[in-house]
Amino acid sequence: MTEVAPLPLETVWFGIPLSDFWFVVVFAFLAIFLFLDGWDFGVGVIFALREDHHEREQCLAAIGPFWDGNEVWLVVFGGALFAAFPPVYATLFSRHYLLLFGVLGALILRGLAPEMYEQREDEGWQTWWGRAFVVGSVGAPFLLGVFAANWLLGIEGIALVSVVAGLALVALNVASGAAFLRLKTTGPLREEMPDYGIRATVAYLALVVVVLGLLALRPAIRDALLAPAPLALVVGSVLLGVGYLLAARGGHPYVALGTSGGMTGAFIALVAVLLYPTIEPMTGLTAEEAIIGAPAVELLTIGAALLIPLVLTYFAVLYSAFSGPIEVGESY
């Protein structure tokens, strides 16, 4: 063991610095998580709005085979952030201490509740686990929205803009959840999904306007917002939102789901674009400063390049095995 001074040497592959590559990968993992598990969260909100016992079971059955795999994207996001940018992971997670334990608590409730719900048939039991499921499904995206806004602004605690961003993410997830349930359920529940999705999308766009207004009150962010890339993302979000409305009304749930995925991507891309080249504003660290050393990042990049195509294959197999509606009681 010898004491040496660290000499950060940036690795560039195919013209792309690996710090930039991992900056994109980390935010892409977060966006994929918020889209895929986002529709599970949205299903949880719709579950709260339906009183019929059978419809509630339809909601749970629809996400049954998928939620666990979807949640792993959060594990992979955390792992990639930890592995590629250790000081960013450490600062963000320790500074947003209670917020992240709130996210964990919500995710525990959301994961545990459906398992518990189906164990017993009596009403009291199912009422309480239904509530736990809803609290978890609303709490997780709300707190993650707050987290994303706090990350961008480099602030701790809860600001108004973060709260509105959290609500916006919940609304966006309801839009995804409605499109998903349109594909995965049958009967009256399915028929009402376009209405839910349309209302949620309108709410999302309205909340995004409020978020942008609140951001514009902060001079540093206002200037950054007026650059071409952020403006393109804002305009793109509005167009995608209109696309969702048309697709939902026209009976194209795949297109609707796709546009809500696009809106989720734009939401996270906006955070990333406004941050870049900084990755953590509280300490002012840039991606280039925070990236791990050359041999480690090269190894990590090769690992990810080999594994991510495999992961996408697993998801393709899973979702194609369960194409079409999922019936209640379909298991084992």
């Binding site: 792992g79 990639a80 930890f82 592995a83 590629a84 000081p87 450490a90 791990i292 690992g303 992961v311």
Partner: peptide, 14 residues
Amino acid sequence: GELFGGPLAVEGMM
């Protein structure tokens, strides 16, 4: 993190 984060990230993906 440079040594410890990698195995955790790979565990998630693999």
